[in-house]
């Protein structure tokens, strides 16, 4: 790494991942939880890109590409599930969704 120093990307990515975990732990709205999952995925992607640049190897870009594909599929199915849950329970608050069978 010539200019910025990949350790800084390490700290930034770690902080971003921790913010995602913080959101998962303290929020109750399901859509916000999905957004926090996206933040955590992006923290991992940032780490991949930083190390791909450090090693001069483009395999990390491929991994980030596939991670984005999976995130897009996950968001589509997750939001369809969320619409279904909202139609049934009239809420997206996870603290009311505590039954395994209904």
């Amino acid at each position: 790494m010539d200019l910025i120093g990949y350790e800084n990307y390490f700290w930034l990515s770690t902080a971003l991942f921790s913010i995602g975990i913080l959101g998962i732990l303290i929020r109750r709205n399901m859509i916000i939880l999905l957004m926090c999952i996206e933040i955590m995925l992006n923290a991992a992607n940032l780490m991949f890109i930083a190390f791909a640049y450090k090693w001069g190897n483009m395999d990390g870009h491929i991994f980030v590409f596939f991670s984005m594909l999976v995130a897009a599929a996950e968001a589509a199915v997750g939001l369809a599930l969320m619409v279904l849950i909202y139609r049934k329970f009239k809420t997206v608050d996870i603290s009311y969704l505590d039954k395994l069978k209904f």
Partner: peptide, 12 residues
Amino acid sequence: SALTLMCALGVV
């Protein structure tokens, strides 16, 4: 970096 972290905190 400051923008990223502040926006992420704002999301939460």
